[in-house]
Amino acid sequence: MKENKILLVDGMALLFRAFYATAMSNYYMINSKGMPTNAVYGFVKHLFTATKNYEPSHVVCCWDMGSTTFRTEMFPEYKANRGEPPVELVPQFDLVKEVVDSLDIPNVGLAGYEADDCIGTLASKYSEHSEVIILTGDQDILQLLKDNVTVSLLKKGYGNYAEYQHETFVKEKGITPAQMIDLKALMGDSSDNYPGVKGIGEKTALKLLTEYETIEGILDNLPKLTKGQRAKIENELEMLHLSRKLAAIYCGVDVDCSLDDAILEINRERMMEKFNELEFKRLESLLS
């Protein structure tokens, strides 16, 4: 029997990327009903290009379910630097899930968690018996790399990916995927709006992790650090530990999706009914 190949799609990453690819030139693909569809159209194009490229047996699409999560409860400033989504994108959040449903692809998400957490949870379950490919534009997901889990990062255009397996990541980055969590805890993440240890940048964080492997290893060897490094870490111990909790993808979300429900079998008639309703042209040709 052919081994399952499961494509886990970071729906939010694809949708935002597709939106901004055309929104920068004020092109929103507003149809005759007044509905902007540029993000959904581009999302489907990314999705179909990936299924053609990777030929998965199963596909699952994961979503954020609102901006309030367990991370914002721990640290209210988490992602607080991000403005409200553009008005042209807002109606496409629900619309894209309708389109995914019309393709008979499961939509998975749970309030209080991010899409990353759902992806991590499902990848952990599926990789025990199947090959898993995660399609995203978010480098944070690289921490999930392990045997049977590949991360495919979207690059500019369609069908261009930076693919990572555990070994290629270690070779390129010089640390393990799991050490990415401690790296972000030390240096912080400006896009997610948490500081880590003030004054510790990527170069220093990588050097410390290469030498001492983990945050615990660094803390056990504080006397060996430079006076400046030690002072910075000791002054920010609470934030260091909090940042690590924020950086770690949680893989114990109460979500599941049976592989029977995730088999990639698109009903073209149902798909075309939805595409015609939205006035999408030429997308179906990407499936042939």
Rank of each mutant, 00 (worst) to 15 (best):
A247C: 09
K146I: 00
P177I: 11
N148H: 13
V197L: 06
K125S: 14
L145G: 06
E114W: 02
I218G: 04
L154C: 11
K171V: 01
S152M: 11
G217A: 08
L183Q: 08
Q229I: 01
N193H: 11
K224C: 04
I175M: 03
G196R: 06
L240D: 12
I119E: 10
E167L: 08
K245M: 09
A231P: 01
P195C: 12
K171E: 15
I134T: 06
D189G: 10
S127L: 13
M239E: 09
N221M: 09
I119Q: 06
M187E: 15
Y212W: 12
L246H: 06
H166L: 15
V170M: 14
N193V: 04
P177C: 08
A123E: 10
D220F: 12
V197G: 06
L145V: 09
G174V: 09
H166S: 02
K232I: 01
E167T: 15
Y194D: 08
A205H: 08
D192T: 07
L209M: 11
V170N: 00
S243L: 08
D192V: 05
L154V: 07
E128M: 13
Y212G: 03
D147N: 14
E211H: 13
G120E: 12
N235T: 09
G199N: 08
I134E: 04
D147C: 00
D117Q: 07
L219N: 12
I200T: 04
D220M: 10
G157H: 07
L135W: 09
K203L: 04
K227W: 01
E211A: 12
Y212V: 07
I134D: 05
A123V: 03
T210D: 12
Q165D: 13
K203M: 04
L186P: 02
Y126T: 11
G157R: 10
R244F: 06
A162N: 11
M180F: 06
G120T: 08
I218W: 05
N193S: 02
G228F: 00
S191F: 01
A111H: 11
D138H: 12
Y126M: 10
L222F: 06
T136N: 03
Y126D: 13
